[in-house]
């Protein structure tokens, strides 16, 4: 009845909380280790009932590669954005673009929207329709700073960012 699962529901989250607590205190003194362990055990236990169950990461390797690729893309995207910002305003071709989504899970869509916002000259504006029920196809509305080719951009988002996320979740 009282299995380990009940008393220690989310080991990974506990580890993460513990590390964050140590970083916050910036020390590995005994008292911080002890209190960090206590908090890392107690907080997930107390909030466990309110938690929405999210899908787990199926392929950690792919997820790590995805993170590194996004970091690289952030730097490239920034240099692009700075070049566009310093150029004349008249040459900008801002646009709203709809990207059809294959992902269905809310967490995966959130991660996709966040990476798209941080990376290539695009900001995610909205997910349409917001509720998954009754809608067979959902769209991500993007604002693009400088749009060269709409079809190419949609393909880039789908291949470069959406395909790995579909593998991960």
């Amino acid at each position: 009845m009282l299995s380990l699962k009940n008393w220690w529901p989310t080991p990974v989250r506990s580890l993460f909380l513990f590390l964050v607590w140590l970083l916050l205190n910036n020390s590995v003194a005994l008292i911080h280790l002890f209190f960090g362990l206590l908090l890392a055990w107690l907080i997930p236990l107390l909030i466990h009932k309110f938690r929405l169950i999210q899908p787990g990461i199926k392929k950690p390797g792919v997820a790590l590669g995805y993170g590194l690729m996004v970091l690289g893309d952030i730097i490239v995207a920034n240099l692009q954005v700075i070049r566009l910002v310093l150029g004349p305003n008249k040459k900008l071709r801002p646009a709203f673009v709809m990207v059809p989504l294959d992902l269905t899970d809310n967490l995966a869509i959130t991660i996709l929207a966040s990476t798209v916002s941080l990376t290539p000259g695009t900001v995610s504006a909205d997910v349409l329709p917001l509720n998954a029920e009754g809608a067979e196809q959902r769209f991500l509305l993007l604002h693009v700073l400088d749009l060269a080719d709409e079809a190419q951009l949609i393909e880039q988002v789908k291949l470069r960012y959406e395909a790995p996320l579909k593998e991960i979740f």
Partner: peptide, 12 residues
């Protein structure tokens, strides 16, 4: 306009 301005602060 606002939508283009948003790109600077979020990325750079």
């Amino acid at each position: 306009d606002f939508y283009t301005r948003l790109h600077g602060p979020t990325k750079a």
